[in-house]
Amino acid sequence: MTNSKKKSRKDLGYHPKMGTQVKDVVLKPDAPSTLLLEKHADYIAAYGSKKDDYEYTLSEYLRMSGIYWGLTVMDLMGQLPRMNREEITAFITACQHDCGGISASIGHDPHLLYTLSAVQILSLYDDLSVIDVHKVVEYVKGLQQEDGSFAGDKWGEIDTRFSFCAVATLALLGKLDAINLDKAVEFVLSCMNFDGGFGCRPGSESHAGQIYCCTGFLSITGQLHQVSADLLGWWLCERQLPSGGLNGRPEKLPDVCYSWWVLASLKIIGRIHWIDKNKLRSFILACQDEETGGFADRPGDMVDPFHTLFGIAGLSLLGDEEIKAVNPVFCMPEDVLQRLGLHPELLS
């Protein structure tokens, strides 16, 4: 290819789209800028009491995770005693099936997602005796496939999320050696992409949520040296938008839950300082609802427990001293992991 040919193409080629729009939001000047801890605690405490609410009922297919979000955020705010421990542990016992797996609600089918949530809750409460731990281990073990991957349940959906659920559950139970770890690691690494990120399955596009699962997985299994930390860190810090918020993939809107998925991943690979912490903090705070308490995905939207946990957990990772320190791998209070003697690897 000659230079002159290149040049002519170049002259033809430069047609910039005028004012390429960055998908983002603008923070209003009157948006909340201080942390409304008490309001958030009241919001979560009241959430579970609306049991015959339509929307609450509709969400029963993920109830176990909902409880985990609520309890974790309460614990991070030092308010765990306000939740009804007896009711919750009895509920979890009732959700364990003969196969060992745990379901989201009574009458629903067991799944790795809810098995992890249940084990996380019981770890918070230091009360694993209310379930048959041995059967949980057998259940998780039984879902590992030939190629090292994990199915979410017996219906065979494969996803790196489930690899994370499996090792996180087993690590909390102190039974990581129950599965074929080398194969499990091999599968997760086969989901690594050109940008250093990870997707659901081999060949799937990188996504901040999956990256959290895969870096968390590699941390638990002690394999973080396999990550291209500089390349992945660059992709992750490019998730920060001018508003300060983080998105989950290129050209998407910012969302408070990504302040967790992206930030935790950056923390795990030792690159959390690559984003602008003050701007992110302002964005997260602006997503609070001053009237009802709780956090929304974006300023002005409806709040929910999911974004409330990840808003608070994100602020904790940013070093907020009013909140307990959160562990970036398990999304649980550090003191709980200390008690369990778990120290998942982090890069420096």
């Binding site: 929307e55 989950g248 995905d297």
Partner: peptide, 28 residues
């Protein structure tokens, strides 16, 4: 019918589409 809560961003990620309990993109 459930309120359709379509939105632009990659929401509803971890626990399948959390469109009900988590109010992704629902303007208050």
């Amino acid at each position: 019918p459930v309120p359709t809560l379509l939105h632009e961003s990659d929401t509803s990620w971890f626990q399948s589409a959390l469109k009900v309990i988590t109010m992704h993109g629902r303007v208050k």
